[in-house]
Amino acid sequence: MTETWDSAGYIASSRYRLTVCDYLAEHGSGLPSRIAAETDLAQPHVSRALSELREQGIAELLVPESQQKGRLYGLTDLGELAYERVALDQRIELSVVDSDGFPDSSLLAELEAQHGGDLRAVAWVEPTKAWIHFSSSALLDEYDEETLKTIVSTLVNEEPLTESLEDLPAGQPEYVVFGLEEALVVRIPADDDVNILISVDRSFDTGVESLTETCLKLTRASVLDTEMD
């Protein structure tokens, strides 16, 4: 995994970190109190986000560490590159849907039947539009729309970041597994214009190959049906 993508994913996976980086990218630097006031975030959330971003080398303190007042923060060179990567990916039209609104309800039903205890979310992603279904409303409450849009776009648009575990005859990766803070996300290409993202708990201990086989079998049939209509 490249350092820039790793940092971009870290920014995108928290709306607080994303909002703080938005502010720093726009203004060049900022005090925690001013960032909080101008973004409508609580100052403890801003302070925690800045601390996390510093730990990852994305943000830096622009004054001496010993200075207790006027602690000004800015993005590092890595942070600027990572945020640029995130900003480029905030382009997709995303809809959160129930099972009836998902493009392939049979896929959802099969995944829930086989992996219901581990399943967090499933997204059907086309070049400019995506549909995402959460297994529970509690999981949906963890994300706002812009954060979801950024995560989905970044995972789909990024080139494979590790060697694939299994290759198709054409040499393209059959799936790629991404590790986020609280979940694993499996990206599976159904065809040239459709990618499926399946999010499961990090403790997921069922074979990813089995999940992938189920997904490919059902989605490719669905894609073929659509092309024949």
Rank of each mutant, 00 (worst) to 15 (best):
F134E: 05
Q43W: 00
L18Y: 01
Y10R: 11
E163T: 07
P44Y: 11
G116T: 08
V46N: 01
S13F: 06
S164T: 06
S99I: 12
L165I: 02
S137F: 03
A109R: 11
A8T: 09
P169E: 14
P64E: 13
D77G: 02
T76S: 15
A36F: 07
R120C: 07
I35K: 09
A82R: 15
T219C: 11
F102M: 01
D104W: 00
S136N: 10
E110G: 10
L53R: 02
T2H: 04
E110W: 05
N195V: 13
E26D: 15
T206S: 13
T150K: 05
D144R: 01
A123N: 06
V63Q: 03
E213S: 05
V20R: 02
E181P: 04
E26H: 11
V208C: 12
A113I: 00
L218E: 10
Y23R: 03
E52S: 15
E182F: 09
E163P: 01
K129N: 08
T147M: 15
V223P: 05
R91P: 03
G74K: 00
P44V: 05
L31H: 09
R85A: 03
T214N: 04
E3K: 11
T128D: 14
L72N: 13
L62T: 05
T214C: 10
L216W: 04
E159M: 11
S95R: 08
E227S: 13
S199I: 05
S13G: 12
L61W: 02
S14L: 04
F204V: 13
L216V: 09
L148I: 09
P173H: 01
